[in-house]
Design a protein around this nucleic acid. Structure first.
Lengths: 176, 176
DNA sequence: GTCTATACGGGGATAGAC
DNA sequence: GTCTATCCCCGTATAGAC
């Protein structure tokens, strides 16, 4: 039990938002998930707003790390971005979805963070591909993959496989 | 005032879901938007579940129409799909987003409908492009455009312009 | 068809004991 | 740090008058 309690709560909250959306992510439900009462939970985060803010900050951290990784090897940047987008179980991908849910319900800090993320990823894509059209195409396709996770029950209905992914990367790189 | 009241309510509900998500789309808010009391609203739709079901049915209708249009001219199918995805003001695009919100909160009929839509659009894409990889790339990029509407405040922050769109269509068609 | 009034449960948050 | 108890608001739905 070396895990910090706050981190544990944020992880559980992320999972709730992914599976049930904002409406299904009540403090009651979250408290139960981490084995606390509602008041016990609110001891760690003063309010729901504080919880949301912390989640968004956590996402910003992970994105900064991700940008470094992606920039480190530009030749595999596209492949990396696609693969990451499909890695729905990763903390980063789950956080993106979770924060997206907050944005959809009117949290402007959430939408601003996601816009910043998009612009940052695009910069790397542009460096990697050298062409704005292809860079945007790659970015949008990756985001389309994330979007598709919304509509599949078991998160893997075979529409996009790893082979599909590899073939798409090849198609984009050859178009350059 | 030839517009049917039920249709008017569904349109307003769609707008609410787009702008404020499910949590912000209460019956109170909807009733106020269409100039009714809550009870008056519930006279037209027995419950929230009935409202959701009607919304999903409306989407299915519009998708069927859209598939016919798209299939009618395969040479412009990709361009048509991209342009439609960016036409955030259209009833179809708004409904897709609205029903997506329902799916995110656990409505399985919503996710099933969206999956059916994806598969149907993919069929046409495949016919139009003749290659599974390019067809999926095109479909995902179009969906990425929809996804991006989530994170832009004024729905048009210049990341994807009509010129970008046209250039992407060209890139995909040349790759074939 | 539309209203007011009301019942009922759930969600966020605080007080105070342990 | 965590609990129980409580408060108040909001959301869904129904009853019954007009």
């Amino acid at each position: 039990m070396t895990t910090d309690k706050k981190h544990q709560i944020l992880t559980a909250y992320t999972g709730l938002l992914n599976q049930h959306g904002l409406k299904g992510s009540s403090l009651d439900a979250l408290a139960q998930l981490v084995g606390l009462s509602k008041a016990g939970l609110l001891h760690h985060f003063r309010s729901r707003a504080a919880l949301d803010a912390a989640l968004i900050q956590r996402l910003r951290e992970l994105i900064r790390q991700d940008l470094e990784l992606m920039s480190a090897d530009l030749s595999s940047a596209v492949s990396y971005y696609f693969t990451s987008s499909m890695d729905y179980g990763s903390e980063l991908e789950q956080l993106v979805v979770a924060v997206n849910r907050l944005g959809q319900s009117g949290n402007s800090e959430a939408t601003e963070t996601l816009r910043w993320a998009r612009d940052s990823w695009y910069e790397v894509m542009l460096e990697a591909l050298g062409d704005p059209t292809l860079a945007k195409l790659a970015l949008l396709a990756g985001d389309g993959i994330s979007y598709h996770l919304d509509i599949t029950v078991d998160k893997d209905d075979g529409f996009v496989t790893e082979e599909t992914l590899a073939a798409m990367v090849k198609a984009i790189q050859q178009a350059g």
